[in-house]
Design a protein around this nucleic acid. Structure first.
Lengths: 244, 244
DNA sequence: AGAATAGTGTCTGTTAGACATTATGCT
DNA sequence: AGCATAATGTCTAACAGACACTATTCT
């Protein structure tokens, strides 16, 4: 039994500084496609610890500014990219005594997808200390803290979801062709897909809307579609398998 | 640029109390099957805040005792149930300014599955203030904090995984029949399954081992199986759908 | 015309659902 | 024998993979 009569009484005497808490941060893997390649945003750390090392964008929860955990994620994302309505998904939380030299720390990892047509917004941010890096090249960066592990978890979760949801739609501009959408799936999965099977799957899912317009190019024009609902994924009952 | 020359220098002057951190806890939904029903362990809070209310077992990360986040989860689980090698999976982290009256807090939610044959261990723990509650009855408990939401997330994740993994094997005793395993799937999914489809699925997955023994009862004896590997799940490429 | 990409028709193999049938122990 | 449950045989519907074929625009 508590020594306080009421909860108000207890709270009046409660000092949050009584017990030291772990450091709490949010880190995120922000993915986009540039030059037909999956890329992730990395920042070069300006301050200690791990000064000069590349890391996932992120930072401490600001108990003043952030009402919720995802506020922290959205705030960091806005700071780094200027984008404010990406697809955002929490992946996992990593916490232990040694991942940060400042002490016991935990980080809540998110991944974000930024559509091609939002990318222009953050072009001016491409300074020396912030850069899109192809995932195929990320091994050449010695990431700070345990960010290699965090990034891997984000990448794996994202790839897994591409196999059974319509997740890649979130990387598309407002209007796109089925060919472009398929290409996006293929880049994320790093594996080719059958055209007919892919189109059947999309058609059965009923998640796309014909705009009535056509995209003309160097060959037969393709129908332009838009997503019926953005931000929400459709779940398929089978995995997308690709050629055997 | 930092004002410190080296990282050592920076760390020497670093005071973790400089910035107040959110309260960090681990909460868990511990599931088992009793009386052919899915049940979850709830504890009655002995202390403020939310004194007297029922809640998911959990508590603060102990930076002294716990090397990692999952250490906290295992420690709490051991304290409440006596079980020390359950199936344990992190679900999500919930954090905001208002979920705990003491201030900005976050909780990392886990779910655990306890096999039938480990249950005896915690029978003596069934005191007034800790109890297995059928999930169908949990709505009658006004859970503390945001634990209703946390429990719901744990339950949904668990149910979803039953549809495409061999997760329910972790709720089985060391040896079991296919009929018993199917019954466990059905309890978790809250939906009947086709016997032949179920057995074909298990057989194709090649995750069970015939013990050579039989379980006799009031009718034809059934073969006893054991899991080839405990703690690891098999992933199916299709969802288990049940009758249409 | 020929290149290039969009879009469709259709065959096949795999597998889950349905349900009938056989098997084997118990009382 | 008759009941109860275990275990299997087998038909069918659904659907993904494969790939050929047609369609439409551009140069």
């Amino acid at each position: 039994m508590s020594t306080y009569k009421t909860e108000e009484d207890y709270l009046k005497h409660y000092d949050p500084r009584q017990y030291e808490q772990p450091l709490a941060t949010v880190d995120m893997a922000i993915f986009t496609i540039i030059d037909q390649q999956l890329q992730v945003l990395l920042v070069k750390r300006a301050m200690h610890p791990a000064q000069g090392k590349w890391a996932l964008p992120g930072g401490f929860i600001d108990m003043k500014q952030d009402k919720t955990l995802s506020d922290t994620a959205y705030r960091k994302l806005k700071e780094k990219t200027g984008v404010d309505s990406p697809y955002l998904e929490q992946v996992a939380t990593f916490g232990d005594a040694s991942r940060d030299p400042r002490g016991w720390s935990l980080t809540v990892a998110y991944f974000a997808l930024i559509a091609g047509d939002q990318l222009a917004l953050c072009a001016d941010n491409r300074s020396e200390d912030i850069s899109w890096v192809p995932l195929s090249n990320v091994d050449n960066f010695k990431l700070a803290f345990d960010h290699a592990r965090v990034l891997q978890a984000c990448h794996e979760r994202m790839k897994a979801k591409v196999q059974y949801t319509s997740l890649p739609v979130n990387l598309m501009p407002a209007e796109f062709t089925l060919g472009e959408l398929q290409k996006t799936f293929e880049i994320l999965l790093d594996s080719p897909l059958e055209k007919k099977a892919f189109r059947r799957r999309m058609s059965d899912a009923d998640i796309l809307e014909d705009t009535g317009e056509l995209k003309t190019g160097s060959s037969r024009p393709a129908k332009l579609y838009r997503a019926k609902l953005r931000g929400e994924n459709h779940y398929f009952s089978r995995l997308m398998e690709g050629p055997r």
